[in-house]
Computed example of a mutant assay.
Amino acid sequence: MTATESLPITPGRRLYVQLGVTLAVLVAAGGMLVAHRGTLDSGTDRLAAADREWLVLACLAAVGTWVCAAVAQQGAVVERLPRGRLVAAQFAAGAANHLLPAGAGATVVNLRFLTRCGLSMRRSATALAVKAAVGGIVRCALGVVLLLASPGTVRLSARAPQLLVLLPVAAGAVVLVVAVSGRLRRLVARAFADVRAVHRYRARACALWGGSVAFALLHAGVVVAVVHAIGLGLPASRVVMAYLVASGAAALLPTPGGLGSLDAALALALTAAGAPGPAAVSAVLGYRLLTGWLPLAPGLLVLALLARRSAL
């Protein structure tokens, strides 16, 4: 008997490994916070004196994000999913997202959930890819709409038109790579087939796109509510644009739950929008507290409960 056979990797041991990774990440984040203790103290004091009504509104928006994620996930598949377990899975996925980098935790939980609901591994993976792609498209579209509705939200540099020319070039390069690779062509064809199947049902298409739009807006709404709670006089359009830019930038950095990457990107975006440094830190702390830190322990409990009941 080999060492691997004598020490099988059980779900319980896997959970302990994930918790160990989370602990290591939290220790590293704690070291960063200690290094910027002065700014953190100032931001914490400002958050402690924040308007409670705005914080309650931010809490409600944070809770709504899990419901919207469930609606968007249902819209990505034709089959009807169990509603209660679907919402619980999104809540658990948010906690699991803080254990693995670049959204891998949420992907694993949702992939397991969909396969448990009877979908094949390929169709489950395609549904997650469709949901992620629609989420990215929605964020870009919201940013464009916001720029058109409020041209003064951000200042475009003189080189912006030159950078926009690169977008069709990059898109053409992606299309060329897909056309050359036969395997990629088959994967894309299957993905488009699933997308067409979903959009044949108006209710599913509305759930997919509407849930994705509401998800992004509610996350931005949490930031807006926290900014108002701490008395920071920034226009809502600038705060929403700051969140859209920060979330897009954080997606490029593979840290668990965006820990560190989203924090820094959001603080920089709010500062660029006109917020003082300590106030930007307060807003980021409030956003993180409501969307990540407070739901973490309950989310892990829900994750363990779903696994125990063989829903994952």
Rank of each mutant, 00 (worst) to 15 (best):
M121V: 14
G105K: 01
V144G: 01
K131C: 01
A158V: 11
T107L: 08
G105T: 05
F113S: 00
L147K: 05
L142W: 10
L128M: 14
L146H: 06
L148R: 08
L119F: 11
A158N: 06
V108W: 15
A127Y: 08
A127N: 04
I137E: 15
V134I: 14
T107V: 15
A141K: 04
L114Q: 01
P151A: 02
L142C: 04
V108K: 02
L128I: 14
C140K: 07
V138M: 03
S157I: 09
A133H: 13
L142Y: 13
G105A: 01
A104E: 02
S157Q: 12
R139T: 12
R155S: 08
G152D: 10
S150P: 01
C117D: 06
P151Y: 07
L156E: 08
I137P: 07
G135M: 09
S157H: 13
L119M: 11
N110E: 06
N110M: 04
A141E: 04
V108Q: 03
A158T: 11
L147F: 10
V109Y: 03
I137N: 11
G103F: 07
L156P: 08
G118T: 11
V109Q: 07
S150R: 09
G103A: 04
G136R: 02
P151F: 05
T115N: 09
K131D: 08
G135D: 08
L142Q: 04
A149Q: 10
L128Q: 05
L148S: 01
V109M: 09
G152T: 09
R155H: 15
G135P: 10
G135W: 13
V130A: 02
V138T: 12
C117V: 10
G152F: 07
T107N: 05
S157T: 13
V130Q: 00
R123A: 06
A141D: 04
G152A: 05
C117I: 09
A141N: 05
P151M: 00
A127V: 08
A104D: 03
S120Q: 07
G118V: 07
K131E: 12
V134S: 01
A141V: 15
A125E: 00
P151H: 04
G103P: 07
I137C: 13
V145A: 11
V109S: 01
L128E: 03
G152N: 09
L147P: 03
L111Y: 13
M121I: 13
S150E: 09
G105H: 04
L147H: 14
G105S: 05
G152K: 06
L119K: 09
L114E: 00
S120A: 04
A132M: 12
G118N: 10
L146G: 00
L147T: 12
L147I: 14
L128Y: 12
G135K: 05
G105D: 01
R139C: 07
A133L: 15
A132I: 12
V144P: 05
S157G: 15
A141Y: 13
S120H: 09
P151V: 03
G152H: 13
A158G: 02
A133P: 06
A141M: 08
G105L: 02
G135S: 12
C140E: 09
A149M: 10
N110K: 09
V145S: 11
R122S: 13
L114R: 01
C117R: 09
A129I: 08
A133S: 15
A129F: 12
V134P: 00
R155D: 08
R123I: 15
R122N: 15
A129Q: 03
S120W: 15
V108L: 11
A104V: 13
